[in-house]
Design a protein around this nucleic acid. Structure first.
Lengths: 307, 307
DNA sequence: GATAACAATGAACTTTATTCATACTGCCCC
DNA sequence: GGGGCAGTATGAATAAAGTTCATTGTTATC
């Protein structure tokens, strides 16, 4: 009888468009694919027609779906703005956000989220904690940082809360002519005798060392450089192999500049978490920041999974 | 965690503002007062503060409530427009709407709804069935009307569906100096010997006759006139008494031009229904018309209750 | 201080949304 | 051309609401 259209449905539609398919949209919304499928089925029964063509990627919307999307685009920004205002009403607008990172590549994807955040919370003082921080989470209890990107969820730390960010695959990077390229996947032994080219971080922070090499008792030569491009240049020219997040090297792989190889039979995966001071863990601006990071990463980084 | 604000909540807030209090808002939304109270309580717990001051009528909104209302005002018109578009997509935009009324006063409140309807469904041919129609519902099977305002729900008619509209009190109208004014309420016997001043409709269509006088076997003199103003002028000058919907005479009563009196111990009530051809009963434009009528009446006519 | 109107509340209930488990579909690829 | 694979659909089970019911609390009014 009366209208059953809710914001939920509009959010689903835009997520579908943004994410490219139902399953990814579900991930973005923290729901299951099934839930969204049911939602859309309901809408279709109400409006008497399909909302989009299922077999096309990206989804192609019908007139009905397009009209609903048009509505979403008009509505959701206002909803977002209103909720932002309300969050600010609830807990002042001021605050600090000193960000520390463990790995340099993080800035690649942190930047868009930081830009969005700055626009949304102009009164929050945002800073990057400079210098080399092997254990950025430790800076939080010392009150030298408010937020840190870390790869391990340390339950021990008091006064520090963790927010899951995402999970990604780490692949071995090899020159196009490397012998190992032929293998379906690499085992620890394959690294013996190779030079491992990495970012300049301590051994125990490299997932490939921590999860694969150390447990197998294999040690390798290391060589490091700051920039991803330089690193790949070294690999391409045969100075060694590397192990990097897939999202960091996807574009090089697509261009055929280097080759890659799964590490371990089931692949090697790293995770990232956002650590923050417990006292700020529930602050609207902190929650908003985490959300922005997750969202922008999911839409930007290829092949990642939200945690 | 993620936003739980839904259109439902925004609809509640605007209904609250439009209707003036929770109970009336509930009526407008076809929900109970309790449901709305729970909704608002939830919102308040989420946003950390009251949405409005309960004890003031009309409701006075807090900053939070006002921000949400602002959002509603920006959103709901778009939602409405979109749903209208979608309804038109589903079932063409053309159609006929020939309206017949049983009682002349109906046009008072039918007009605003008709104006709104014309704007929303420009391609639907709207007409008023002219002439005197003692039984307008009968015109529907004859295909001389598509919609009729009637005061009885006749289950017998085939091919005709009824939509409940509203219920209203019918009061006796007396000159300021009339003796009966002193009575707490009038019974059938009080009408004996009086002249009943009415619109020019047959006896059996007057609720006061049908529900009170006929059952008691009391007959009265009748005198009729078309216009409400003329009718009241006759009453005021002592030519007789009348029985009219409260909403039709409220403004005269407020000005003290005439007096009124409850009819029967529990009051006399009339109801109105919208009759329409079954074949059109589910048509989007017909449902929309009924909705517009109910809504505009509820917001406009004092003292009515939606059915 | 009774009455009436409105709002709040907790529990029962109903409805709806979501998940789970599984089956279906189109597509790519040896 | 028969796996695998990624995406989608579906029915039943479950979880999570939203809503009502019955009642109480509150405030204003006469």
């Amino acid at each position: 009888m009366s209208s059953l259209l809710e914001l939920r449905h509009l959010r689903t539609l835009t997520a579908l468009r943004d994410a490219g398919n139902l399953s990814r949209a579900a991930e973005l919304l923290n729901l299951t694919q099934s839930a969204l499928s049911h939602q859309i089925k309901l809408l279709e029964s109400v409006y008497g027609g399909a909302l989009y063509e299922r077999k096309s990627a990206p989804p192609r919307f019908t007139a009905i779906g397009a009209r609903l999307l048009e509505l979403s685009d008009r509505l959701l920004p206002h909803v977002d703005a209103a909720e932002l205002d309300l969050a600010r009403l609830a807990a002042g607008t001021a605050g600090q956000l000193r960000i520390a990172v463990e790995c340099h590549t993080c800035f690649d994807w942190l930047m868009p989220a930081m830009d969005a955040f700055r626009a949304r919370w102009p009164e929050v003082e945002m800073d990057i904690v400079s210098g080399f921080n092997p254990e950025p989470a430790a800076l939080i209890p010392q009150d030298k940082a408010d937020f840190a990107v870390v790869s391990t969820w340390e339950n021990g730390l008091t006064g520090v809360d963790f927010h899951p960010l995402f999970r990604f695959e780490i692949v071995a990077i090899l020159s196009r002519s490397h012998a190992l390229v032929e293998k379906p996947w690499l085992e620890a032994a394959d690294f013996a005798g190779e030079t491992l080219i990495t970012y300049p971080v301590p051994d125990e922070m490299l997932d490939v060392v921590r999860q694969l090499l150390s447990p197998s008792g294999i040690t390798v030569q290391r060589r490091s450089t700051e920039l991803t491009a330089a690193l790949l240049q070294l690999v391409a020219s045969g100075r060694g192999i590397s192990a990097l997040p897939l999202w960091a090297v996807k574009s090089y792989l697509d261009r055929g500049y280097v080759k890659h190889c799964t590490i371990g039979r089931d692949g090697l995966y790293g995770s990232l978490y956002g650590a923050c001071a417990s006292r700020l863990s529930g602050a609207p601006y902190m929650l908003d920041f985490v959300r922005l990071v997750r969202e922008s990463c999911f839409l930007t980084l290829p092949g990642i999974t939200l945690l």
